[in-house]
């Protein structure tokens, strides 16, 4: 498992690995929002939590099809399925590698982008915390969606349709935690719900992902 994790991290940072793509996408989406809604600081500050969370979510979505599609194309997925580690561990490891190369960097750069949207300074900590707690769920759910569509050519759009509805709870609680935290209200409840969604999906979905992979390998 460690070998697989290190390999996925190494592939991500090598050329063509896609590391940084989702970060750049996040930056662009965030920069576009003031162009769309106008530069009034009050409006921007009000929509900043939701806009940042949607931007992060779309950035994660953009990188999902890399999780299994490339391994499927070059035959690695077949070989992983015959390797001595269970497919559930492969699914969990690849979701972890995806989070380390996507969710974690997104959480770390989000405060800088919050400035662009006039995010309340008090909300910065909540933004990082909610992204750190919520993005694991995005990676695990995304890995499941990627596994479901791994056998399809150009399955990216279908995967988006499958995955985005499942992202709704994370988005609601994540944006709510940032908004309430920034306003000085109690944000513990949405954060706990966010952590609950992440823990639940991390516990269950690797098994569903492995089952989906097995079906698609046939």
């Amino acid at each position: 498992m460690r070998a697989l994790l290190l390999r996925d991290l190494r592939l991500a940072v090598r050329s063509g690995g896609g590391f940084g793509l989702s970060l750049a996408f996040f930056l662009i989406v965030t920069v576009l929002i003031p162009f769309g809604v106008g530069p009034e600081p009050g409006v921007l500050a009000r929509i900043a939590p939701g806009a940042l969370w949607i931007g992060a979510l779309l950035a994660v979505l953009l990188s999902l099809d890399r999780i299994f599609a490339l391994d499927r194309e070059d035959g690695t997925l077949d070989l992983l399925a015959t390797a001595p580690i269970p497919l559930e561990a492969v699914a969990a490891t690849k979701a972890l590698a995806h989070w380390l190369t996507t969710g974690l960097p997104l959480a770390l750069v989000a405060p800088g982008l919050g400035v662009l949207l006039n995010l309340a300074p008090a909300a910065t900590g909540w933004l990082i915390g909610s992204l750190l707690l919520g993005t694991p769920a995005l990676s695990v759910i995304g890995a499941f969606g990627a596994a479901l569509t791994v056998g399809l050519k150009r399955g990216g759009l279908l995967m988006s349709l499958l995955v985005l509805p499942l992202y709704v709870p994370t988005l609601i609680f994540g944006a709510l935690a940032v908004g309430r935290g920034g306003a000085g209200a109690d944000a513990a409840t949405p954060l706990m719900m966010l952590a609950g969604v992440s823990l639940g999906t991390v516990a269950v979905l690797p098994f569903a992902t492995a089952a989906a992979l097995r079906i698609n390998l046939r």
């Binding site: 460690r2 070998a3 697989l4 390999r7 190494r10 592939l11 090598r14 050329s15 063509g16 690995g17 194309e73 070059d74 035959g75 690695t76 077949d78 070989l79 992983l80 015959t82 390797a83 001595p84 580690i85």
Partner: peptide, 29 residues
């Protein structure tokens, strides 16, 4: 569990070197 499979595709990562590709499989197995 006793069988090593080799299909139509080689299962190589094109950005990894030959040694890195083989070492990955050795560690995984």
């Amino acid at each position: 569990g006793m069988i090593a499979y080799h299909g139509h595709a080689d299962g190589l990562k094109s950005t990894l070197t030959a040694t890195e590709n083989l070492r990955f499989w050795a560690e995984l197995f």
